[in-house]
Amino acid sequence: MSRIARGRRRAVVVMTTLLVAALAAAGCGAPIGEGGRFGVVYMDAQGYYAGVRKGMQDEAAEMGRNVQLLELNAQGDASQESSFVDTVSSADVDALVLSPVSETASIPAIRLAHRSGVPVICYNTCIADEAARQYVEAFILGDPLEFGRLLGDAAAEYFIAEGIEAPQIGIVNCEQVEVCVQRRLGFEEALFAKVPDAEIVANQQGSTIDEAVDVAERILTAHPDLDAFFGQAGGATLGSIRAVQARNKVGQTVVFGGDMSTEAANALVDHRVLKGNVDISGVTVGRMAAETAQAVLAGNPPEEFILPAPVEIYTTPEDGATWLQEHPDGLP
């Protein structure tokens, strides 16, 4: 077994031990969780998921409920996700709220939760549609096609204003999940409608910031005249910005991306590299998840399976400054 595999196994064992202890304490009359216990899975450590956590806590507090969140950062690992879901399902949590790491590999864990009588609510990502309709109560989703279209429109308007008729664009993607594929399709649809000679010269995966920096730098090496990056999510966007700065391409290569954060907002205020950023607020999604979970537990499940989360675009330095004022804690 490799060192990385041993480390992941130890992490799962420690997580499971702590989780069982927390569940035991809650079951012994402790006030924590008296308003419900939710298993919550975050796909990775990006700031969006911290916003989801805060939104769930805020919504629960406003409903007067002392909800206990039993949490896992899955780090994109379906095996960690599965171990966690198995544990919370066996312990009869009231609901499972998660952003699954895989459309397919996450199905067995979610099926187990469903068969154990635990209501499942997806947000941001979910399992394949046919399975989701069987095992999931609701899916909170910011329309990924609209996400991409907003950025594609913004990019097209930028190229038109700059007189760039045949821009070269590199994509740093998160297309291991279907929503990111849909974001690209929306981006391309809007972009090519207005700038038909635009060309996607590269499309490579780089979900975390470190990965995205490496990927974006390789794309810049292969395509030194690159006009723009499309970062499909937060890590891809910030990594692309940093690569442009590191390779002294400021003033030549711009970035259009997704997921607001303090760093992204500051880059938008600067406006030399980041020209547009689309966001689906993690806090808003977290509030919706908590509200939906409570409604399901009360016997009032939503009538619609997909619950739309708002999608917003920020394109000016003023937009960035306003976001910073409205988010002093930096949580999106």
Score class of each variant (00 low, 15 high):
R3Q: 11
E211Y: 02
D210P: 00
A21C: 01
C180Y: 14
Y314L: 09
R218S: 12
E326L: 15
S90K: 11
G163E: 10
C122F: 15
A198M: 04
G320Q: 08
F147L: 03
V195E: 03
V14L: 09
G170L: 03
A309G: 03
G276E: 04
I32G: 02
D329M: 08
A166R: 13
N248T: 11
D270V: 05
D197N: 14
V93K: 12
D44V: 10
I219M: 13
E291S: 15
E312N: 12
V120S: 01
D92C: 09
N277D: 09
G258K: 03
V12H: 00
Q46K: 05
V285D: 05
L268W: 05
Q252S: 13
V250Q: 13
A233K: 00
G206K: 01
S116H: 12
L238W: 01
H223R: 04
D92H: 14
Q134I: 14
E303K: 15
G234E: 14
A228F: 10
S116C: 12
G33A: 03
A222G: 04
I164N: 02
L220Q: 11
D94H: 14
V88Y: 09
A24N: 13
Q57C: 06
T221Q: 10
D153A: 10
S82R: 12
L324Q: 03
V195Q: 05
I313N: 05
V14T: 11
